[in-house]
Amino acid sequence: MISFRQVGKRYPGGFDALKNISFSIAKGEMVFVAGRSGAGKSTLLKLAAAIERPTSGSVLVKEQDTGRLKKSAIPYLRRNFGIIFQDHKLLFNKTVFENVFLPLQISAFDPREAASRVRAALDKVGLLGRERAHPVELSGGEQQRLCIARAIVNRPSILIADEPTGNLDSEYSGIIMDMFKSFNQVGVTLLISTHDEFMLQKLKPRVITLSQGELST
């Protein structure tokens, strides 16, 4: 499903965020990316989501080399992903409903079907009934769940989450991890970055550990 082959990422100014990274993730797998702050976790996730392009090596997503894809083809590839951003990237001038509706609007869904999908996604994350609220009226945990609803509304085959439990207490973290497990059980491939050692010990998932931009054993 996702394959990194000797991937390197150098930012302008010469900083190497990732060096010679190789791994593969099979369809339906749940993989965690661990490492300290600045280890390159977010860069790796951005490369997997085709938000960044590698400076060396190749990233294959659904057998498509993201580095060789035409710029115009990238948006269509991204529609296969559900992305949960570290900083949520919620639209604060829009309602909960409109935030979740956006990916369906982009994919040109029929408005009626889109509305029922939005309600289903909000129901899954426990936000049904808050459609008219604005993100600013939600708690940190609710905002995170809203972000998850937006990521799953398109029923993506790959879910990428950057530190999804970073700012949450252990109770909310547990709820969100349970959600991810339920998505994984229906065949969704998950790539999640975290530095929560406690969670990794509890779940015992497959972990890719990064240290200063390199894979560490």
């Binding site: 948006p75 269509y76 991204r78 639209l91 956006l102 990916p103 982009i106 937006r150």
Partner: peptide, 15 residues
């Protein structure tokens, strides 16, 4: 912000 988020989640330039 809306444009940035839309681009990240798969919006084309036409959209």
């Amino acid at each position: 912000d809306e444009i940035e988020v839309a681009k990240l989640i798969g919006a084309t330039n036409t959209f």
